[in-house]
Simulated scan of single mutants.
Amino acid sequence: MASFHHCIKSGKKGTACGHAAYIERRGRYKTRGEDLIHSAYGNMPAWAANNPGRFWRMADKHERANGAAYREHEIALPNELHVDQLIALTERTVRELIGNKPYQYAIHAPDGSLAAIPNPHLHLMYSDRLPDGIEREPDRTFSRFNAKQPELGGCRKDSGGLSPLELRAGVIDARKTIAHLQNEALAEGGHDARVDHRSLSEQGRQRRPERHLGPARVRGMSTKEKAIYAAHRGGEPGLGH
């Protein structure tokens, strides 16, 4: 059952490389690799053209102490779509949300905690640093932007100088875009299901939002309790990781 979930996260300096390994199920996360169905990257600078891991290592090393080394869109994907359709939808989503910024993504599809229903979702990591055609070494890429002499500073951050109101508007626009692209993909695939980026109250629905149980609580539930809860939710799985 298609359902809408989208959140934006930030990773502080020193966490980007580890998170990239996590979404790609590399290193100590290799044992969780059975849920990884696709990964890709793009828009990397010349010094990391074929090595996104180097880009995130340099972000961890050279980004400002109080700066975000990466940001991430975490997005639930419709489980009505097969793998090729999920990949095509993801590529459209990346083009619309990321533009020319450096990115790396992974699609995970674990079974839901409460029912054995595939739970595909997207981890889309990206840098807020905007390429501007100037070739920079890694340390310069992540330094402070110099508006008067751009070649002497780092790449400008996309969120730099925006007010809270402008940032909020950007999030709403992203959510609208994600819902629109998912509904397009569902329609193209011949499915009747649709998603809605709006809150329940904005949709005029009285149902209270579901309470997230969390992995620990789900593990403590009996098989019967899981079945009852899953049936109450209409078989809809949680997001997972």
Results as ranks from 00 to 15, higher is better:
residue 189 G to C: 01
residue 139 D to Q: 11
residue 232 H to V: 02
residue 144 R to H: 10
residue 7 C to V: 11
residue 108 H to Y: 04
residue 108 H to S: 00
residue 91 E to G: 07
residue 93 T to H: 05
residue 99 G to N: 08
residue 237 P to N: 04
residue 90 T to I: 00
residue 196 D to E: 09
residue 124 L to W: 02
residue 83 V to P: 06
residue 159 S to Q: 13
residue 130 L to S: 12
residue 92 R to T: 08
residue 217 R to C: 03
residue 20 A to V: 05
residue 152 L to D: 13
residue 180 H to M: 11
residue 102 P to K: 05
residue 95 R to S: 15
residue 51 N to P: 06
residue 9 K to R: 10
residue 59 A to H: 11
residue 213 L to E: 07
residue 68 A to M: 04
residue 10 S to G: 10
residue 6 H to T: 08
residue 40 A to K: 03
residue 46 A to V: 07
residue 39 S to D: 14
residue 88 A to E: 11
residue 240 G to P: 00
residue 148 K to M: 10
residue 239 L to G: 03
residue 207 R to A: 15
residue 86 L to R: 03
residue 99 G to S: 02
residue 14 G to W: 00
residue 19 H to Q: 06
residue 55 F to Q: 06
residue 185 A to D: 10
residue 177 T to D: 15
residue 165 L to G: 13
residue 104 Q to G: 08
residue 182 Q to M: 11
residue 185 A to S: 13
residue 1 M to I: 05
residue 17 C to M: 11
residue 35 D to M: 12
residue 41 Y to D: 09
residue 98 I to E: 13
residue 198 R to M: 01
residue 7 C to R: 13
residue 125 M to P: 02
residue 44 M to W: 03
residue 69 A to F: 08
residue 47 W to A: 05
residue 9 K to E: 08
residue 13 K to P: 00
residue 123 H to G: 01
residue 94 V to E: 13
residue 175 R to T: 06
residue 147 A to C: 08
residue 87 I to T: 06
residue 227 A to M: 10
residue 177 T to M: 12
residue 210 E to V: 06
residue 127 S to H: 11
residue 167 L to F: 13
residue 54 R to F: 08
residue 28 R to C: 00
residue 203 Q to A: 05
residue 104 Q to T: 09
residue 172 I to S: 13
residue 93 T to A: 07
residue 39 S to R: 09
residue 33 G to C: 00
residue 205 R to N: 10
residue 222 S to E: 09
residue 148 K to E: 15
residue 172 I to H: 04
residue 225 E to G: 05
residue 93 T to E: 12
residue 198 R to W: 01
residue 221 M to D: 10
residue 235 G to T: 05
residue 59 A to W: 01
residue 113 S to H: 13
residue 87 I to S: 05
residue 128 D to V: 10
residue 77 L to S: 07
residue 193 A to Y: 12
residue 77 L to K: 04
residue 102 P to A: 04
residue 76 A to R: 13
residue 47 W to Y: 07
residue 183 N to K: 01
residue 39 S to W: 08
residue 190 G to Q: 08
residue 74 E to W: 03
residue 228 I to A: 15
residue 82 H to G: 09
residue 8 I to D: 14
residue 217 R to K: 14
residue 133 G to V: 03
residue 26 R to K: 09
residue 148 K to V: 11
residue 103 Y to E: 02
residue 27 G to E: 00
residue 178 I to F: 07
residue 64 R to S: 13
residue 144 R to E: 14
residue 219 R to D: 14
residue 205 R to S: 07
residue 156 R to E: 11
residue 192 D to P: 00
residue 50 N to T: 12
residue 164 P to R: 02
residue 102 P to T: 03
residue 215 P to K: 03
residue 148 K to A: 15
residue 194 R to F: 04
residue 41 Y to Q: 06
residue 23 I to Q: 02
residue 220 G to A: 15
residue 82 H to R: 09
residue 201 S to A: 15
residue 216 A to Q: 15
residue 140 R to H: 09
residue 129 R to Y: 14
residue 34 E to F: 03
residue 124 L to I: 01
residue 17 C to Y: 14
residue 146 N to Y: 06
residue 34 E to W: 07
residue 174 A to V: 02
